Computed example of a mutant assay.
Amino acid sequence: MINLYKEDFKEKDDFLIYNLGKINIVFSTAKNDRSFNRHKDYGINNLNSIVDYFNLKDIEYLNQIHSDKVYIYNGDETLKKEEGDALITNKEETAIGVFTADCVPIIIVDEKNNTIAAIHSGWRGTFNSIVLRTLEKMEYEFNIDKDEIKVFIGPHIRQCCYEVSEELKEDFIDRTNINEDILFKGRNLNLEECILNDVRKFGVKENNIYSLKLCTYCEDEVKLYSYRKSVGTYGRLFSFAFIK
C-alpha cells in the first residue's frame, strides 16, 4: 500500500485532486465550510456547482443507506433516488461520488478500461464487504483488469479515534479473521484494514492501493467534517471521480 498525504494532491479551493490522465479523483474538505448534504438546498446547490467547476456534463450519487448495494450508472436515467452505497460508471464527463462524515470513501479506477467506482463504506458496509462486491461487479460487468485496478481510500475516522462496542468488536473478529492485534487497539476498530483485506483478496496489486492518511476526527492541518466530533449539526464531505 502507498500512503498519500495532502502534498500528493493538487489543492484547489476546498478540493484535493489526484490526476490520473483522463481520470480525476477528488476528495472535498471543509476548508471553506462547504457541505454537500443532499437533503438540504445548499447541499444540492454545492453538488450541482461541481459540474461547472470541473467542466462536466452531470453528477450522480445515491441515497445512501449503509448497505452493500451496488449500482451501475449507464447514462440513461438518474440514480439519485435509488438506495445504495456504491456506484460504477464508464461514462465520460459525469462525476460519481459518495457522502461521508467519518465513514470511509473509496474510489476505484481502471484506467485501461476507463471505468470508475465510488463507494461509501461505514461499519455496516465494511462488515458486509461492499468494496469486494463492487470490485466483483466491475469485473463481471466491465471486464476490469486486476493488474490495472487502482484503489484510493479517502479521509475517514481512523483506528486512533474509532471506538466500538465489545459486541461489534467480537463480530468483526469473527467475520474478518484478521489478527485481533491488527484489527483492534482495545476497542478501536481499524476500518481500513478490513477494506484492505477485501481488496487484497480480490487481487489488487499492493502498489496500486493508495491511502490518504487523514483522520476526520483528529486531523488538525486539513479541516474535515466528522459526525462523532460534531455536536448536533455536522457537514458532509463528498468524494468523487470523473472521466474526461
Rank of each mutant, 00 (worst) to 15 (best):
I173V: 10
D145Y: 09
I149F: 09
H156V: 10
C161H: 06
N188L: 15
E167F: 12
L183Y: 00
I182M: 07
Y162R: 07
N188W: 13
C194P: 01
N177W: 03
E192Q: 12
N197T: 10
T176M: 14
L191M: 10
K146Q: 05
I178F: 00
K146M: 08
E192T: 14
L168E: 13
F152C: 08
K201D: 09
I149S: 07
Y162H: 09
F184S: 02
E167Q: 12
D198G: 05
E193H: 00
V151G: 00
F172A: 01
N179V: 09
Y162C: 14
V164M: 07
K185S: 13
N197G: 04
I157L: 12
E180V: 14
E180R: 15
K205S: 14
R175C: 05
N179G: 11
D145L: 10
I173F: 00
C161Q: 06
L196D: 02
G186F: 04
K169S: 07
E167W: 06
D171V: 07
N207M: 08
I149H: 03
L168M: 13
Q159E: 09
D145P: 11
N179F: 07
V204Q: 05
K201G: 06
S165Q: 04
F202I: 03
N179Q: 13
D198H: 04
K169Y: 02
G203C: 04
I182V: 09
F184A: 09
Y162S: 14
D145A: 09
D145E: 11
I173D: 01
E193T: 00
F202L: 04
N197H: 14
K169L: 08
Q159W: 03
E166V: 14
N197V: 06
K201H: 07
K150Q: 11
G203N: 08
E167D: 15
V164Y: 01
C161V: 06
K201E: 11
C194N: 03
L183M: 04
E192I: 15
I153H: 00
I182D: 12
V204T: 09
G203F: 03
G186T: 05
N207Y: 10
D174G: 12
N188C: 13
P155I: 08
F172M: 09
I149P: 07
K169A: 04
E170D: 15
P155N: 06
E180I: 08
N207G: 09
D147A: 13
Q159D: 02
R175S: 13
L189I: 02
L196Y: 03
E167H: 12
V151F: 01
E192V: 15
C160G: 11
I182T: 13
R175W: 04
K169V: 05
E193V: 03
I195S: 04
V151L: 02
K169D: 05
D181E: 15
F152Q: 05
K150W: 06
C194Y: 00
N177K: 14
Y162L: 15
R175M: 13
F172L: 01
E163N: 13
E167A: 10
F152D: 08
E206I: 12
K146H: 04
E148A: 12
D147E: 14
D174V: 04
V151W: 01
N207S: 14
I157G: 03
I153L: 05
E192S: 10
I157F: 00
K185Y: 14
V199D: 03
C194H: 01
I153W: 00
